[in-house]
């Protein structure tokens, strides 16, 4: 009751854009400064996960993996929640199950643009009367 009243009287506190700016800057600067391509960062991520996953089973949904920057020093921050520890670590060659993201690959005949175009032109052919 009282807090409602106070909120009405004084207005509630909105998130301030100053903090948003700082947070967004920290993120882009970490990437700008490290000068690592998104492809290589992704490769690095994959390989680290591969190594770690030989010893522990990771909770793939809770993974965090990012570059952070402070005082002109860039650090790789990884938060890898462990589901369980493997009693027998896997051998280096054993494939580790990946998060099952559906893969979108650009193969030569994977996307059939012709058909789409054809369909579109068919639609356009419908007489207007």
């Amino acid at each position: 009751m009282i807090s409602d009243f106070l909120e009405k009287l004084f207005g509630s506190r909105e998130p301030v854009s100053r903090d948003t700016a700082k947070q967004r800057l920290r993120f882009v600067l970490a990437h700008d400064r490290s000068d690592i391509s998104p492809q290589n960062l992704e490769k690095l991520r994959q390989e680290i996960l591969e190594v770690v996953s030989r010893y522990v089973e990771l909770d793939l949904d809770g993974l965090e993996f990012s570059l952070e920057s402070d005082q002109r020093m860039t650090a790789l921050m990884a938060n890898l929640p462990i589901r369980r520890v493997r009693s027998n670590p896997l051998e280096p060659d054993t494939p580790v199950e990946e998060a099952t993201d559906s893969k979108l690959e650009l193969e030569d005949d994977a996307i059939e643009l012709d058909e789409i175009v054809e369909e579109a032109s068919q639609t356009a052919d419908i007489p207007l009367d």
């Binding site: 854009s17 100053r18 700082k22």
Partner: peptide
């Protein structure tokens, strides 16, 4: 605007750029 926290402060910018 800095006082209203709608602009980065001198310290914010300085911390970031070092």
């Amino acid at each position: 605007m800095v006082e209203a926290e709608q602009m980065m402060s001198v310290k914010d910018v300085q911390d970031i750029l070092a």
